[in-house]
Simulated assay, not measured.
Amino acid sequence: MDRQPVLEGERLLLRPLEPADWDALFAVASDPQIWAVHPMHNRWQEPVFRAFFADALDKRGALAVIEKSSGEVVGSSRFQGYDPMNGGSVEIGWTFLARRLWGSGANAEMKRLMLAHALGHVEVVNFRVGEDNVISRKAMEHIGGRLTDQIDMTDTPNGPVAHVVYEITRESFATGPLSRAA
């Protein structure tokens, strides 16, 4: 599975994240409100975001999200943890968008593009969401994510954080809210 494809929708273009995206992406990420309910609520700070950005480049699964109408970088997401065994799975996560796009359908378009790409190669896409991140949990339910009984603990500089896991299967995507046919 290509974890850094170019994906194009009506309003968004997703392409591999590049080092030259730093300034534009940090301009979006430096909004503290984006991270207010996120487990890494200090990611708006430059040193913390610099580590996040470097990790995204190192793991080679990150995408820059471009608003086609303006040409601006408006966020990022990643494909991580690709496992081709038993039908295959991959995780979509580390997603954030400029606040001006919240509630606009941009997140749903981005996830639809990423899910359609991933589910052409794997049977299941997983999403790890901070247990207390009510905004992201609501977004997962909105796009058809099914809450599993899996809980992952992650050590962060802010202490251990519990993440719940949602999944979307090839079958549930085909009939779910992000399906073009639904």
Rank of each mutant, 00 (worst) to 15 (best):
G81L: 07
W22A: 03
M40W: 13
A54S: 08
A162S: 14
L97F: 09
A20F: 02
E72I: 00
D2K: 12
K59A: 10
E123A: 14
H142Y: 13
E141N: 13
E123M: 11
I143R: 07
L25Q: 07
M153W: 10
D132E: 13
S30K: 15
G105V: 00
W102M: 09
G93W: 01
E8R: 13
K68G: 02
S104V: 02
K68Y: 01
A54C: 07
F49H: 15
V90T: 07
W94I: 02
F96G: 01
D149C: 12
P160E: 05
R99A: 01
G159H: 00
S30A: 15
E67I: 00
I143N: 06
M114C: 07
Y82D: 04
A98L: 01
H163I: 01
A162W: 02
A36K: 15
F127M: 04
E72Y: 01
E10M: 09
I151H: 06
N158A: 14
R112G: 02
M153Q: 13
F53P: 01
P5D: 13
E109L: 02
I168N: 03
S70E: 00
Q4G: 11
F173Q: 12
P160M: 08
D132C: 07
A182G: 15
D155H: 10
L25E: 07
S179P: 07
V28S: 10
G103Q: 09
F49I: 06
T175F: 05
R180I: 09
G88V: 01
G105P: 00
A27V: 05
A27W: 10
G87L: 00
R43S: 15
T148Q: 10
V165M: 13
S70M: 02
E10F: 07
G144Y: 07
L101Q: 08
L57M: 04
A139G: 03
L115K: 01
A64Y: 00
R43N: 15
S77N: 11
A108S: 14
V161M: 11
E67K: 05
L7A: 08
T95M: 05
V73S: 09
F79H: 03
P16K: 11
A27R: 15
D21R: 04
M40T: 12
S172R: 04
V6A: 14
L178S: 05
T148W: 04
P177L: 02
D149N: 15
V65L: 06
S77D: 10
T175R: 12
V90P: 10
N133W: 12
R78T: 13
G120M: 03
R78D: 04
W44V: 06
D2A: 13
D132M: 11
N158G: 11
R78C: 12
A64V: 03
